[in-house]
Amino acid sequence: MRPVLVLLLGFHLAYAGKHSLRYFYTGVSGDIDFPEFTVVGLVDEGQFYYFDSNIKKAVPKTEWIRQNVGPEYWDGGTQNDIGEHQNFKNNIQVLKERFNQSTGVHTWQLMYGCELDTDGTKQGYFQIGYDGEDFLSLDKSSLTWTAAKDQAVATKVKWDSIGADAKFQTNYLENTCIEWLQKYVGYGKDTLERKVSPQVSLLQKSPSSSVSCHATGFYPSGVTISWHREGQEHDEDVDLGELIINEDGTFQRASTLNVKPEEWKKNEYKCVVEHQGKTIREILTEDKIKTNYASVPIGIIVGVVAVVLLLVIIAVAGFMVYQKKKGFKPVASDDGSNSSTHSNQKP
């Protein structure tokens, strides 16, 4: 039996006014059922760029990028990513030796990019991980590299001796990356800056089960879902679900009230959903609950399909984002295609 690779997500999602550009390079060694090497580019958490070592070509994932860049963009990205795949093959062997590993599935990931807020605040990140844990990261303030593992110290020392490289990466993250982020947001403005209010439903699997307040179809992702009891916010017995991306790029989220029916029937419970200055309130009564033990509401069907599609994308892309991280950002070369100059360095 082949080993199971658990892929972990830790999105730092974009809210209105904040935009992000990020790239994830993921290499996996061992007996696996998906591509050995993948590159995924995202603007505001939506995938617009994809490459893997099976198809050996960079391809567009949104209509707005397809319509605004030419063949040279994709040719340049393809050549860069093919080169990065070879670098991964060489470097993963060095890392396996350092960690005294000879068998099993092992992963390497580079995450880098930038964010731009409405007030002009910029952020940039360049981080490398190995087997799902931090390995090495760029400290832009000191223009040095930070080793998160003893096995990374040798790499830090070597890369610190090449001071121009850290300076180049920092300049890229703070300037070039921001320029391309603004260009991409301009390309996809109608999609990336749209505002769509959520559809809110009260859902229950069976007459005796917990009730969920389900908000779906909203954009951007910033939403607050809370439960109120007799006019006061109720935090006990409440489980807030993960934010999920729908197939159309909108989002969904649910909050479950773990209170027995006899309890909420005796008191007034209300679900309050806040999004982009709009507040939606749903009073919990039997007649407002949609059940899915007889028939499944269409919103849930769409959500389940979206989750399945997302998991497929994640599995194919090798999206091993660290649990404890809130997000990382991307980089692009001067021709607009993604590139990682520093990953060409041997560890």
Rank of each mutant, 00 (worst) to 15 (best):
M111G: 14
G41A: 09
K158Q: 14
E247P: 01
T62V: 01
E274C: 01
D81R: 00
L192F: 04
G277Q: 06
F319E: 03
V94C: 05
Y15M: 06
Q204G: 03
G249M: 01
E268Q: 13
L8G: 02
S20V: 08
V59Y: 02
G231F: 04
G30M: 07
H275G: 09
I300S: 11
A254G: 14
W159R: 01
A152N: 05
M111R: 15
G249F: 00
T224Q: 12
I55Q: 14
T250R: 15
E72L: 09
E115N: 05
T107N: 10
E262I: 04
Y73N: 04
K122G: 01
S102N: 13
V302E: 14
T103H: 14
R253L: 10
G129V: 06
S226H: 02
Y322M: 12
K96V: 01
Q204A: 06
A58L: 15
W108P: 01
T144G: 04
F319G: 05
Y269T: 08
W159M: 09
A154W: 07
L110D: 13
L21G: 09
L9W: 07
E233M: 12
G129N: 15
H228P: 00
S226C: 05
C271V: 13
R66G: 00
T216C: 05
I178N: 09
H234P: 02
L8Y: 08
H85C: 12
D75N: 13
K325H: 11
G222V: 02
N344P: 00
D134M: 14
G217P: 07
A154R: 09
